[in-house]
Write a protein that binds this DNA or RNA. Structure first.
Lengths: 333, 333
DNA sequence: GGGCGCTAGGTAATCGATTACATCGGGAGG
DNA sequence: CCTCCCGATGTAATCGATTACCTAGCGCCC
């Protein structure tokens, strides 16, 4: 493969001149033409490895995602990738599979590859490597999940408005005994969603007692199903369930079907996260949609600000309620 | 960040010795200890960019996937990533979004980054860049989709056994008027699946006339739905439908529901590709499961063979029929 | 005891770009 | 006409590793 020296020889100039032409500095028209012609004829492409060594910039970003097979994160990763690419960066995606060890291992690899910046949707509750990233000075942005004690901007969705709408929606449909399925205790997003929902319900005089708050051992459909089973076995079972993640919603759906219950007649079901196939379930699920692609874009922009040395704060984007038919009476429009 | 020179100074040896210790060649115990201690104290990590420049190997693979948001490809990408990582390689994933231009663009970027090898599940019908990859000598493996005229091994699943089983299954359940939803004409995988299914049906004396072969304009649920509509509008509508892709199966499900038809009573539905939520539809879908993770692993292994200069042929792994309840009578076990 | 071979480890070239600095030539101003 | 300055371009250092080649020292054998 042709290198810059070959181009220089062919054009009858020095390598410095070739570099300058290609990077848009100075050289005059005639020289410029000759260099570009040589580049064309040889099919020259700059060696980005050599360039990265010299400039100490790889034009590569890293993304460590907690579970790539969760459709919410798939879409998030896709959005990040597209935006990074649009701005001239490549992306290396690492899938932590909800394991903090694998996450740390991945971050290590990415740092070794001298990525210009890192985005992490952290598995579990924080990790040692995250602190190391910060103290090593590598620009970092937390995505979807904030991590206490890590000094980095966080880009995520905020559910206040959507959950307020949801509470109103449920109240209007006469649901009085809501329940919530939350992720394992201690994950900040789950707790926040729970508290916002509780507050919103309170505005309609509806309580959310502890027995109707089910904590799943993990973010999986099996976990969601187990929690739903317990909720439905209560002496006073709920008449509405909010699952705070799409996989747990799927598990809830399974349990409801297994018992021969009907949605929305016997139980209303709402999911946090709107993934494509929720529109295709029977009935279509009402969901709190996160602005997934916007989150991805915002994460990249925030990271680039940091990379270019500008300060950048956290970003909170509002989620919104998508009403379908799983709580009763279809939307009237 | 500490570099090899810092380590050399601290250990009181030359950089060559440090390099040798770290790469496992010669030096004697005492020196070795000193070097490793210095590495430890300084938290030294080799600069992989510099190493790549010198050795002309980046230990990075590229994967260009036709549509990352299609759950089949999500899982495939995840499997590839895990295996690559296990073998000490990083992976850059590019999502072509079923666009040949974007695919070419991506391949260009990956070549520029001097990846050691490339895997492609090609969007559309081939592309100019693929030939360029081959003639540039970059090891290439085609994944899931073969491309006529490109001299590279192809790793994919083969449906003969599964479709033979499916034909028997449908025949046993008394289905006599099967239909197929195929991807746009000209995509080799779709055509192959169609022909294998046709042959298998013939073995049971069941015909597959042209009017019951619906060709979707694209690999999407909307496309699948449109085709299903046409099939159901036939004077003699089918009593079983095989969708050759999971998204098109989803569209078929939508159309069936919209018409108030019941599965399996009014229509049997089978999908090619088994994705997680097929087990959660109502009823759970019978599907032809590709050995997705094995495909990913095989692709990485085949590629590494090529990278290390050994010849490697194509790999065909058998798909298998997963019987659930969308064709009638549950399995008797 | 001298020559030989072997090994540990140092010196320096190299990968392919970017870029600080030097040089050269020409035009403008005094 | 000379000087000064500026713009175009060349020369060479540099990024951080790997590795070919060379040297020094040691032990062994005759």
């Amino acid at each position: 493969m042709a290198n810059i020296k070959d181009v220089a020889e062919r054009a009858g100039v020095s390598v410095a001149t070739v570099s300058r032409v290609l990077n848009g500095r100075s050289p005059v028209a005639a020289t410029r033409e000759r260099v570009l012609a040589a580049v064309e004829e040889l099919g020259y492409r700059p060696n980005v490895v050599a360039r990265a060594l010299r400039t100490a910039r790889t034009r590569t970003l890293g993304l460590v995602i907690s579970d790539l097979r969760n459709p919410f994160f798939t879409e998030l990763a896709d959005a990040v990738e597209q935006e990074a690419r649009r701005l001239g960066y490549s992306l290396i995606i690492g899938n932590a599979g909800e394991s903090p060890e694998q996450q740390d291992d991945y971050i290590r690899t990415l740092l070794d590859r001298r990525i210009d910046g890192l985005m992490v949707s952290s598995a579990g509750t924080g990790s040692a490597m995250l602190h190391e990233v910060v103290s090593a000075g590598t620009p970092l942005v937390l995505l979807d999940r904030s991590v206490p004690g890590v000094a980095a901007p966080c880009v995520r969705a905020e559910g206040r408005a959507a959950l307020t709408d949801l509470a109103a929606h449920l109240a209007a449909l006469g649901r009085r005994r809501p329940a919530v399925i939350v992720a394992p205790a201690g994950t900040p997003v789950g707790d926040e969603r729970l508290e916002l929902f509780r507050a919103a319900l309170l505005g309609h005089g509806i309580a959310l007692p502890p027995e109707r708050i089910g904590s799943s051992p993990d973010l999986s459909s099996a976990g969601g199903r187990r929690v739903t089973r317990d909720l439905l076995d209560l002496a006073e079972p709920p008449d509405a369930v909010l699952a705070t993640d799409n996989l747990m919603a799927l598990g809830a759906l399974d349990e409801v079907r297994a018992r021969g219950l009907r949605i929305p007649d016997d139980l209303a079901l709402v999911a946090f996260d709107d993934v494509p196939w929720f529109a295709h379930t029977d009935p279509p699920l009402t969901a709190v949609a996160q602005p997934t692609r916007e989150l991805g874009r915002a994460a990249v922009h925030t990271l680039l600000e940091r990379i270019e040395g500008r300060p950048a704060g956290s970003v909170l984007l509002p989620a919104r309620l998508v009403v379908r038919r799983s709580c009763g009476e279809p939307p009237t429009h």
